Computed example of a mutant assay.
Amino acid sequence: MQSILIIAPNWIGDAVSTQPLLANLKVLYPNSQIDVLASNWVAPIYRACSQVHAVIEAKFEHKKLQWSLRKQLAKEIQAKNYQACFVLPNSFKSALIPWLANIPFRIGYRGELRFGLINLALDNPSKVNRPPMVEHYLSLSQLLKDDAFLPSNKLVPRLNISTSAKQSIEIKLQSANISGDSIYVMCPGAEYGPSKRWPTEHFAALAQQLITQNSNNQIILLGSKNDHSLAQEVTSQAQQARNIHNWCGNTSLDEAIALIGMSKVVVSNDSGLMHIAAALQIPQVAIFGSSNPTHTPPLSDKAKVIWLNMPCSPCYKRICPLGHLRCLKDILPEQVFATLNTLN
């Protein structure tokens, strides 16, 4: 197998979880060229994967077919003569491009009327017995040949930091008079919804505790432009906001990866940035609410998970169906601060 195309998932955390699949494909097909078709949103994750030869970026929009764009991409991809394609999203539209491009082996999970579009398939696991996402994607590597194997040791995601992104972040830190020695990154957002977001007042209280502990500690709030208002709430609720910096929406994802890689500790919700911190082996505290840490854990021995495992969780809802959000509100800043002090 000389050339393989990957159709990337649409969420950052899921994209990070596909890296072990890429690593295993490189073991199975050491001479293969692996390219990835990804939305602009997740493309930086694949630029941070050493197994990827090229990233093909596309302006895919959520819940839109974009038929003309997909036909054009299929025409371009057909000219590259890929032998196999792994279609990692479960949607019908994600399987259209490799089918239109006449790629011989189209591998993925069954679902959403994809019969014929996918010609090597596994059954989707039930919601009750969901495996961890890394295992979910890794299992697909068995489908291309009968003697393919899964690694006996657990593969965990690993990302690299680009030199240019690191240089860019160093310039931004210097411009903001922030020392790189004691940066704590906090990620108050979670794209999925409020039921995965630790309260902003708790983030503010934790930031204040860290600054009180050491006046040299710098807190950088990191996330997308959609998280900017959340970060503003954190800074306004903190007693002393002098060492708290709202960078949400002010970095590219490539730069965010570099900043996380330079940080001392990351505190986050169950989000894409949590998975990036784990893949970079940065000490972290990951706070879970409506989701399940056995399904989407931060795969790092430097990560500590805080989850109350309440009777109503995991509910997987975007908004708390009971209206109290106790699964997150009852995780107090003092508990997270104490956990931070146990990290290596």
Rank of each mutant, 00 (worst) to 15 (best):
P131K: 10
I45R: 02
I103Q: 02
V42D: 07
H62C: 05
S39P: 09
R106H: 05
L122G: 13
L73T: 05
P125Q: 09
K71I: 03
G116P: 02
E57F: 07
I56A: 05
N90V: 07
Y109G: 03
K63H: 14
P98K: 02
K59V: 11
A101R: 09
A121L: 04
F86D: 01
G116M: 07
D123L: 06
C49P: 10
S141Y: 04
K63T: 06
P89M: 00
F105P: 12
I107P: 11
L120C: 10
I118K: 13
G116L: 02
F105H: 15
S141L: 04
H136S: 04
V128G: 09
Q66M: 07
A121G: 12
L117M: 14
I77W: 00
S141I: 05
I118G: 04
E112P: 02
K63V: 07
I118L: 15
Y137V: 03
N90S: 11
I118H: 03
S68C: 04
P44S: 05
R110A: 13
H62Q: 15
N90F: 04
L73N: 01
W41N: 05
L122P: 05
W99Y: 14
V55Y: 01
S91E: 03
L69T: 11
L140V: 07
I118Y: 02
A43M: 08
N90T: 06
G108R: 06
H136G: 05
I97T: 06
I118F: 06
V87K: 04
A101D: 07
K80T: 07
Q78K: 15
L73P: 06
K80A: 13
R110D: 10
Q78S: 11
L100P: 02
G116T: 07
S139Y: 13
N40Y: 03
W67M: 13
L113W: 15
V134A: 06
A48D: 09
A95F: 01
S126Q: 12
L65S: 15
K64A: 12
L117E: 05
I118T: 09
E112V: 01
R130L: 15
A101V: 01
I107N: 08
I97Y: 00
P44N: 07
S141K: 06
Y109A: 08
H136M: 08
